[in-house]
């Protein structure tokens, strides 16, 4: 079984081609996630959250920059190494429960299928029943998928993802289209996975309630890390090249082109806009 693994991205850039033009989905993301940490990726649609998650999962290769998961540099990993990573180290829960499941298998069989590659690699994997218990599906292992509620399906998707006890669990919108009861169950399952397996959990979400339940959130804006929230407190993050994205309320006051003097006062930094006549 894997313990939680740290994630480190540095100046991560991802450019893709759309309708003949190059589009930068991510333009220099620096992110550090500690081993066993549980974080949420927030941000508006198109900000690049899912792209970042896919890059962390090794589905894409970055255009520039590095991604390190544990000791592995993903951007330099071979296809085979990526396959092995997905077999047991990195798990991804895709948006939409059905997309994570083989529809003709029961939850138990789906989990068993997800453990197949890890077993082939000689990795130790938890018992299927334990996995199902971890996510709260202990009694539904033999049910047909079509008999499950949407919430149970999502839990099943989580169970499949953690079947091989990964070091990193990446979940894309795991609570979308769920009612609040199911949503809470899914988040509880993720928390349990984090707690019991020690897995590092990265969750992409739009849901402020979900974000609020996470100890750390990272806001992606325009392809960059736009801020962080910790225990309800919002922070801006200074990038590796010294840029500091302003929070929304500050941007309303400091319109583009505004000259700002940064002054240090003790351990505090003050942004002091230049007088009107100097602008």
């Amino acid at each position: 079984m894997s313990a939680g693994l740290p994630i480190l991205t540095s100046r991560l850039v991802h450019i893709y081609r759309s309708e003949g033009s190059d589009v930068a989905a991510l333009s220099g993301v620096d992110l550090r996630v500690r081993a066993g940490e549980q974080i949420g990726l927030l941000g508006p649609s198109g900000a690049g959250k899912s792209t970042l998650l896919s890059l962390l999962g090794g589905l894409f290769r970055p255009s520039a920059g590095t991604i390190q998961v544990g000791d592995v540099e993903l951007s330099a990993a071979t296809t085979r190494e990526l396959e092995d990573l997905r077999a047991g180290t990195i798990a991804l829960v895709l948006q939409g429960a059905w997309r994570n499941l083989l529809p003709y298998l029961t939850p138990r069989e789906n989990v068993g299928f997800a453990q197949y590659a890890a077993r082939r690699l000689g990795r130790e994997v938890p018992e299927v029943d334990d996995v199902l218990s971890t996510v709260g599906l202990a009694g539904a292992g033999e049910a047909a998928l079509t008999a499950l509620t949407p919430g149970q399906l999502q839990l099943c998707a989580v169970a499949v993802a953690v079947a091989a006890a990964p070091g990193v669990l990446l979940a894309d919108e795991p609570t979308s289209q769920l009612d609040h009861v199911a949503r809470d169950r899914v988040m509880a399952a993720l928390a349990e996975v984090n707690r019991s397996l020690g897995a590092t959990v990265v969750v992409v979400t739009h849901d402020p309630d979900v974000a609020a339940s996470l100890p750390r959130t990272v806001t992606i804006r325009d392809g960059r890390v736009g801020g962080e929230g910790r225990s309800g407190e919002e922070y801006s993050v200074v990038t590796a090249d010294g840029f500091l994205p302003l929070p929304t309320h500050a941007r309303e006051a400091l319109v583009p082109g505004t000259l700002v003097r940064v002054e240090q006062s003790g351990d505090r930094f003050v942004l002091d806009p230049a007088p009107e006549e100097e602008r």
Binding site: E83, R86, G88, L94, R99, L102, A117
Partner: peptide, 16 residues
């Protein structure tokens, strides 16, 4: 296609 993606996601590789 989705099932192939699931298999790849779970590390089965192309052969799997």
């Amino acid at each position: 296609r989705q099932e192939v993606a699931v298999a790849l996601l779970r590390g089965s590789g192309r052969k799997g």
